[in-house]
């Protein structure tokens, strides 16, 4: 059996830290919270430094999002799930560009957080519905070109919050929905600044045959 997945939780609210630890521990298999604290330092020292996944609140007591902390963690090769109060698209897209594997709003609950953490543990991206909405509504100039089907999957996922429903609507399987979402994220990983997580994502997508070398 594989070693248990570990996470470090950085959030300035004790109740959120406790809640996240409970959700992660209650999953099957459970995810262990190795360390937690209100300061990003917990992710760099002691048990936090070796945790597989960093769950990072973007707004640590200040009005400005902790994008610098996110960038440093990602550059050190850490797999980061951003867990934020704010649902604004621009911040979400910036976090993806910096190399976060997931941007999750606190309005999205347990199920998404556990799944995002588990995906991050494998180095995989996870796209919750609100992030799908942000990607579908992305109007920036450098956004990657998505196929009509990919856009449809994003929109349907954003609208329904249910992959089974998306699959039913589009007449595809739930796993095809997932691979569409993954391919979209690989496309996004190829734009903006370079990051180890993004490079790994693209490399694995090629290995898995999700995209071809000619797509690069």
């Amino acid at each position: 059996m594989e070693a248990q997945l570990t996470a470090v939780v950085v959030d300035d609210h004790p109740a959120v830290r406790a809640g996240v630890a409970y959700w992660l521990g209650a999953g099957t298999p459970p995810i262990t919270v190795a360390a937690s604290g209100e300061d990003v330092r917990v992710a760099w020292i002691g048990d936090g430094a070796t945790a597989d996944v960093v769950i990072l609140d973007l707004h640590l007591g200040g009005p400005t999002p902790a994008l610098g902390d996110l960038r440093r963690l990602v550059e050190a090769g850490r797999r980061v799930v951003v867990y934020s109060m704010r649902a604004d698209d621009e911040t979400a897209l910036t976090c993806l560009e910096l190399g976060a594997l997931c941007y999750l709003t606190k309005a999205e609950g347990e199920e998404h957080l556990v799944e995002a953490t588990r995906a991050a543990g494998r180095g995989d991206p996870y796209t919750p519905p609100s992030l799908a909405g942000a990607l579908a509504g992305d109007r920036s100039d450098h956004r990657p070109a998505l196929s009509a089907r990919e856009t449809e999957v994003l929109v349907e996922w954003f609208q329904s919050e249910s992959k089974d429903f998306v699959a039913q609507r589009l007449g595809i399987t739930a796993s095809t929905v997932n691979s569409h979402l993954e391919r979209i994220r690989v496309k996004y990983a190829q734009i903006g600044r370079e990051a180890p997580t993004k490079a790994a994502l693209v490399a694995r997508a090629i290995q898995d045959g999700l995209i071809g070398v000619e797509d690069l």
Binding site: A136, G137, R139, V155, F158, Q159, S160, E161, S162, F165
Partner: peptide, 16 residues
């Protein structure tokens, strides 16, 4: 589930 999506091409209001 109510969603409002605004892209550069259209506005979509959906309910499930």
């Amino acid at each position: 589930r109510v969603s409002v999506l605004r892209t550069d091409q259209e506005v979509r209001v959906a309910v499930l």
